[in-house]
Design a protein around this nucleic acid. Structure first.
Lengths: 212, 212, 212, 212
DNA sequence: GATGAATGAGTTTTCATTCAT
DNA sequence: AATGAATGAAAACTCATTCAT
């Protein structure tokens, strides 16, 4: 790590090692805490687990939200990558798709914060996280295109993931594995061979409202 | 005033009207607030919306949790009943099932508190709420039994509802109706005609556990 | 609703019966509640026990304090009278004194509010209550004067009552009767035959202040 | 100071000074407030007097009860120690006993919270506080054993303290020193030379019970 | 006159964020 | 730069007192 660094050079790089170590520790601890307790976790809990002081934590992440975002982005990536790996190891395209779902859902169930924030993440605040996931799914989609019923989109596959994710979470405590049946059913619904065309999808006719 | 009013008669029902009006206003306001903001909504917000003071609110519902429970039970019932009605009005068993899901999901998406509590509601804390829903689904299940693939259980249908509910919520803001496609797919997966049997389901082999 | 009540007469006496009944019920209930829970008892608890509404209670006693005072005055009188009766039934002056203390202390221990307020009652706010008690003690004092050491005042006897009252209360739960020993000791200290004179007593030299 | 102190060493004790100062300020302020107003004192009052924010107070004492306990324990110890010192400085065993009572009662009178909690303190919740006091009294008891009437126990002496404590408090405002006479009387009652034996004491015959 | 529902200021406690050391 | 103590605005809940019926 930059042994020399004589006298003249840009004086401002030395303590970086510590800073990075701290930042990593914070992110690591936050990831665990967020997975367990969701985004309502106390910031101090994270500081404690990281082994750093509150000040250090806030130097790296001025707002709790910043930390949450950073962490979720990373978790999201890891999660997507891990599921993707599972798919790559599969024997055939269909198995790849199925294995991807199984692996992803298994992880999803254990991460409270990812669940809480999926809506936000997917829509606007973090286009990157979801994009990555979409890429993975696109890949699987392309690979299994012939086996899927016509009209199925990557978007559909993504939404199925989110959807089953909730089922997993809701049933994980008292009925583990119950969701496997639902995954099986849904995948069957995706197979080529089904007659009818799928409904229109997200037309632009703003038929949804919300809000006070 | 009140010339007649013999001797003994009714004398004591008048003030109740106000109380009932207030209680209703509270429940109404709480329902709206809970739907929008979830169970973390501020009690004062509810009091303000109801047009009553904190004391009045707490007279009717000694704990915030009491109010939440009361409201959610009601909302749950209304929601289930409305979806059931939709099913009853359908032409054939399959349409009944599909219409039920459509109606239920449409309502589900708009209620943050119902979503938040579904897990709890479904497991133990409010057996009545979920039981009601399960009965409706059982009814539909029985009606469409011949059209469903063998092995599909009421439990599966219930979980599908929860599962899609999340999908609806996540996409409702920016892609309304996207979930209709997913529903279509899932229902197709449920149709008779699919070859393979469904996976075992919630066996007792404790194959997944929470960590640390 | 006073049917007759011609034209002239003092219009304002008829419904008094109800009012009195209510007032009595309130005082009765308040006495019990105050004895059990002390002056911090909830006004609504008293209303409930009385079987009257809050409005009625507040019509009779515009402030909680008014009710407390009224009740304590009455309880105080009853208590003093009952102890006095015990003394009257005794065989000799000394026994009268001892029996009085025993009876009074036994009642005192069961009345949280009397204890709490003794200080106030005795000093200024309710000169009547304490006066009554003082009269009883004066009577006993006079009767047993020959048996008491010189210099003992009615004031001393009164304070001894208060003092032992606290001891009774503190020990009543876990060591009932322990206070009997202390009473015995104190009475022995009051007997004629003790040599030394008693200390000066409440001289005007303001040797007490309060606070930091 | 501490010349050497190579490279790694102490690094971390500075900020503690403030914390300790604050903690002390809180305890100090709480002691005063509790003495004046008893345990019902508003936590904010204590924070204000300490000059710290609510958060700081709650950092040091997570529950109001924690603060109360900490303070009372300290006050209790100080109080007992100070009274003991007074006893040690006395010329003879009897004077030691008397001086102890005088000193203790003088302090007791000024502390509402100590009074309020004595019952609790003495029975179970804080065995340490009362134990300390009992030890002191045991010491005095042993020293003055020959001068005391037979059968007097440490328990009696302790109860006498509590008992007189209340008398002090009740009279302290308007009749300071009145209690000195009562102390004198009681101590005389404790002297050897009294004929009759003391009553049985806390026998197990449950002869008095709380109602409802 | 009676009723009891309504009021709202006041109490304890939490937690994101700042700042002195 | 790091530390962790300090801050104070909320939030849930209570209760003496008032007021419409």
């Amino acid at each position: 790590m930059a042994v020399a660094e004589p006298e003249s050079a840009p004086r401002r790089r030395a303590p970086r090692v510590d800073a990075i170590r701290n930042r990593d520790a914070i992110v690591e601890a936050a990831a665990a805490a967020l997975a367990e307790q969701g985004t309502s976790v106390d910031v101090r809990e994270i500081a404690r687990r990281s082994g750093v002081g509150m000040g250090t934590l806030y130097r790296h992440f001025p707002k709790k939200e910043d930390l949450v975002h950073t962490v979720l982005r990373r978790e999201f990536s890891d999660w997507a990558a891990s599921a993707r790996q599972q798919a790559i190891d599969a024997d055939d395209p269909w198995a790849a798709l199925a294995d991807f779902y199984r692996q992803a859902l298994d992880g999803y169930a254990r991460h409270r914060a990812i669940m809480e924030r999926f809506a936000l993440v997917s829509s606007d605040s973090d286009p990157d996280g979801i994009r990555q996931l979409r890429l993975v799914i696109e890949e699987l989609h392309a690979g299994a295109a012939d086996l899927l019923r016509p009209g199925v989109t990557t978007e559909d596959l993504l939404l199925l993931l989110v959807s089953l994710g909730h089922a997993v979470q809701v049933t994980d405590e008292c009925r583990p594995q119950l969701w496997h049946r639902l995954l099986h059913i849904s995948l069957d619904g995706l197979r080529a061979g089904h007659a009818g065309p799928l409904p229109a999808g997200p037309s632009t006719q703003d038929s949804n409202r919300r809000r006070r």
